[in-house]
Amino acid sequence: MGFKLLSKLLVYLTASIMAIASPLAFSVDSSGEYPTVSEIPVGEVRLYQIADGVWSHIATQSFDGAVYPSNGLIVRDGDELLLIDTAWGAKNTAALLAEIEKQIGLPVTRAVSTHFHDDRVGGVDVLRAAGVATYASPSTRRLAEVEGNEIPTHSLEGLSSSGDAVRFGPVELFYPGAAHSTDNLIVYVPSASVLYGGCAIYELSRTSAGNVADADLAEWPTSIERIQQHYPEAQFVIPGHGLPGGLDLLKHTTNVVKAHTNRSVVE
Rank of each mutant, 00 (worst) to 15 (best):
A136F: 03
Q49F: 09
D164T: 11
V54C: 02
G131A: 07
V194A: 05
F3L: 08
V171M: 03
G72I: 01
T60M: 14
T60K: 08
S113E: 01
G65C: 04
K91C: 06
I20L: 11
A218Q: 14
Q229S: 13
V28H: 10
T134G: 02
D125L: 07
L106T: 09
K258P: 06
A59R: 05
V187E: 05
S160H: 11
D85K: 00
A234D: 00
S137P: 07
I17Y: 13
A259L: 09
I104N: 04
Q235D: 13
V11S: 11
P170V: 08
S162N: 11
A215R: 03
I238H: 02
A165F: 13
A179M: 06
P170S: 10
G32L: 10
Y48S: 14
F63R: 05
G197E: 01
P232Q: 09
E44P: 07
D52Y: 09
G169T: 04
A133C: 07
P221R: 07
G72R: 03
N262T: 12
L127N: 01
L6W: 09
V257P: 02
I100A: 06
Y34D: 07
G210H: 03
F26V: 14
A234R: 02
V146P: 07
P69W: 07
K251I: 14
A15F: 15
Y175N: 08
R206Y: 07
L143T: 04
A144G: 05
V112D: 07
R206Q: 15
F168H: 00
F168G: 01
C199M: 01
G131F: 00
W88S: 00
F3A: 07
D248Q: 14
S137V: 06
T140Q: 05
K251G: 12
V42G: 14
Q235P: 06
A90F: 07
S31V: 09
T253F: 03
P41H: 12
L13K: 14
S139E: 13
Q61M: 13
I84A: 01
A133M: 14
L195N: 00
S139M: 13
P69G: 15
C199N: 01
L247I: 13
V112I: 12
S16A: 15
K4I: 14
V112Q: 04
A209N: 15
Y12S: 10
G246M: 06
V121F: 03
V266H: 11
V257G: 02
A133K: 14
L127F: 06
D79F: 09
G163K: 05
L82G: 01
H117F: 00
S161K: 13
Y34L: 11
A234E: 02
T60F: 11
V126K: 05
V126S: 06
L10W: 07
T261M: 13
F26T: 10
S31Y: 11
Y188T: 01
P244F: 07
Y48W: 15
L204C: 06
S113A: 10
H241Y: 06
V67C: 06
E99P: 05
P69R: 09
N149W: 06
R206K: 15
S208F: 10
Q228E: 13
S62W: 06
T14P: 14
V237H: 02
T86R: 00
A200V: 07
E145P: 06
G210P: 03
T182K: 13
R120E: 03
I151W: 05
D214P: 03
N255R: 13
V45T: 06
G245K: 03
G242I: 06
N71Q: 03
L5K: 15
L97H: 03
L82I: 11
A111C: 08
V256F: 06
M1P: 06
P221C: 05
L247K: 14
R167D: 14
G43Y: 06
S223W: 01
G158V: 05
S56R: 15
R206L: 15
A144I: 07
P35H: 08
A25N: 13
A94Y: 13
E39S: 12
I50T: 06
F174L: 10
E172I: 05
V121N: 00
F63V: 06
H57Q: 05
T93G: 00
S155H: 10
P190C: 05
R76D: 06
G169E: 05
S162L: 10
V11K: 08
V112N: 02
P69K: 08
V11C: 15
